[in-house]
Write a protein that binds this DNA or RNA. Structure first.
Length: 490
RNA sequence: GGCGCGUUCGUCUAGUGGCCCAGGACGCUGGCCUCUCACGCCGGUAACAGGGGUUCGACUCCCCUACGCGCUACCA
């Protein structure tokens, strides 16, 4: 049997990282087995309609690089792929169920149900539909429907029997049907509930494996029953462990960033998000951690998916992002941040901006981070650090700085753009300047740093010189010399 | 409350009865490198939820307990 899997989100307006992982595992499974990946939109809740949600979802998948073989955008032989466009299908199937006695009309109003639950709660009983409408005769039900009375259709769960769910990840899970509610299948507005639509569509779309979040495991026996009612073969199930907040509750919107879009904004690379999320609940047979999508396709297996929920660790995500950026060549990285640095390039020329990036890229965790660092190095200096400034209250240090300035000013102009040579030349100038007054090593460099930046930290000075260029280097040196003179210690 | 799932370092995890006084990664941390920070390199830290079995031998199998989580809607 050919493998057909699906990712079936309800269009809430954003893609949850948990959803991304589900979609990814489905994708990996499909690709590896030479199967098809289907996108199906489960928009059966009219009250939660979000404008533009599908478009947004598609654009996020586009960014992330996951492609569906069939779906509302891609078409396919099993459409429509949007549930709100399949309403008649669900109605027909409910009639079929009703005909066979597996579904019944229920006329209980929301108020009635609420009262019933309140009473059950008060008596400390398990809240469950008491099946009062199940006892209605078919005649009476038809009469009330004919009279236009609002109603839903519920599934008639068998009284007492075991329902067995076979799960590829969890093995066999047994449920007693008495604990299963007579689930609503078709709502009073004519829309199906998840349970009905899901089963009908999975069957009609010939889905072979249902790979979804663990939160669906408790309702799977109902689905199994529905397959039985229809006389259909059920697909294979695989329930994935949940993605968790740091407090180990189900990862949710209110506890931080859960939307793929949020991570995109933070500068996380799409391939990193894929790599990272793949490792949440799945582990390869060795200890590798860096995987491209095609490597994941090769390595993935449901057998190696774990059972326990996984906390989404932002710190490790950032580390992985840094790893990916580290792996990029200087050229590639520059191209990736070029747009964000356009103004600086116009102002300082491309060679120096690019050089700055190369010098500063060590340890950057994102493109934004890289851009920030480059911007900082070109920005005006913050007020001098007192300790650093104090170094220049020294006669010798000042003389050395003065000497350095003189020597740098004499360097030929073209040299300032030949960064390697400039580094060497600068070091030589500084050392020679130091020699005139017997300043060397740490003392020499600290003094030069104080004069150039006034800051305790910063890029290596010999390279900062190339980044800044002649004009600024000389200007900063002069400025600090001027400042220092009137700055004698009290 | 009911039903279900789960439980190895803080976090992601390896481990399918002896290879494990438990391995890798992130984090944290010590050192080295060094004009500083970062990077890099080398090292350290830290876990089998508890209790009973089964077995010559249990992280691995069984049972119980505890804890966590999920579901319990005319939401998905």
């Amino acid at each position: 049997m050919s493998v057909r899997v699906r990712y079936a989100p309800s269009p809430t307006g954003y893609l949850h990282v948990g959803g991304l992982r589900t979609a990814l595992y489905n994708c990996l499974f499909a690709r590896q087995k030479g199967g098809r990946l289907i996108l199906r939109i489960e928009d059966t809740d009219q009250t939660r309609r979000v404008e533009g949600a599908v478009e947004n979802l598609l654009s996020v998948f586009d960014w992330i690089g996951l492609a569906f073989d069939e779906g509302p955008h891609a078409g396919g032989a099993f459409g429509p792929y949007v549930q709100s466009e399949r309403l008649d299908l669900y109605r027909r199937h409910v009639s079929q169920l009703a005909e066979a006695g597996h579904a019944y009309a229920c006329f209980c109003s929301p108020q009635t149900l609420e009262a019933m639950r309140a009473e059950q709660a008060a008596q400390n009983r398990i809240p469950m539909y008491d099946r009062r409408c199940r006892r209605l005769s078919r005649n009476e039900a038809e009469k009330r429907i004919g009279a236009g009375e609002p109603h839903v259709w519920r599934m008639a769960v068998p009284e007492r029997r075991d329902v067995l769910v076979r799960d590829l990840i969890r093995g066999e899970v047994r449920f007693e049907s008495a604990t299963l509610d007579d689930q609503v299948l078709l709502k009073s507005d004519g829309f199906p509930t998840y349970h009905l639509a899901n089963v009908v569509d999975d069957h009609l779309m010939q889905i072979s494996h249902v790979i979804r979040g663990e939160e669906w495991l408790p309702s799977t026996p109902k689905h199994v029953l529905l397959y039985e009612f229809f006389g259909w073969e059920a697909p294979q199930f695989a329930h994935l462990p949940l993605l968790l907040n740091p407090d180990r509750s189900k990862m949710s919107k209110r506890s931080g960033d859960v939307a793929v879009e949020d991570y995109r904004k933070k500068g996380i690379l799409p391939e990193v998000l894929i790599n990272f999320v793949a490792l949440l609940g799945w582990h390869p047979s060795d200890d590798r951690e860096i995987f491209s999508l095609s490597e994941l396709v090769r390595e993935f297996s449901l057998e190696r998916v774990g059972k326990a929920g996984a906390v989404f660790d932002q710190t490790k995500l950032l580390w992985m992002n840094a790893e990916y950026i580290k792996a990029q060549s200087d050229e590639a990285l520059f191209e990736n941040v070029r747009r964000a640095l356009a103004d600086l390039i116009a102002l300082n020329g491309e060679p120096r901006v690019k050089y700055a990036l190369v010098v500063l890229r060590g340890g950057v965790t994102s493109y934004d981070d890289a851009v920030k660092r480059v911007r900082e190095v070109f920005a005006p200096l913050p007020p001098a650090d007192p300790e650093m400034a104090a170094l220049l209250d020294d006669e010798t240090a000042r003389a050395v700085v003065q000497e350095l300035e003189t020597r740098l000013a004499k360097l030929p102009a073209p040299l300032w753009l030949r960064f390697d040579e400039l580094e060497t030349a600068f070091k030589q100038c500084a050392q020679e300047a130091g020699q005139t007054r017997g300043l060397k090593g740490k003392n020499l460099w600290r003094a030069v740093r104080a004069a150039m930046t006034g800051q305790p930290h910063g890029p290596e000075l010999a390279r900062l010189v190339g980044i800044w260029g002649r004009e600024r280097v000389l200007a900063e040196l002069k400025r600090s010399l001027a400042t220092v003179i009137g700055h004698a210690p009290c």
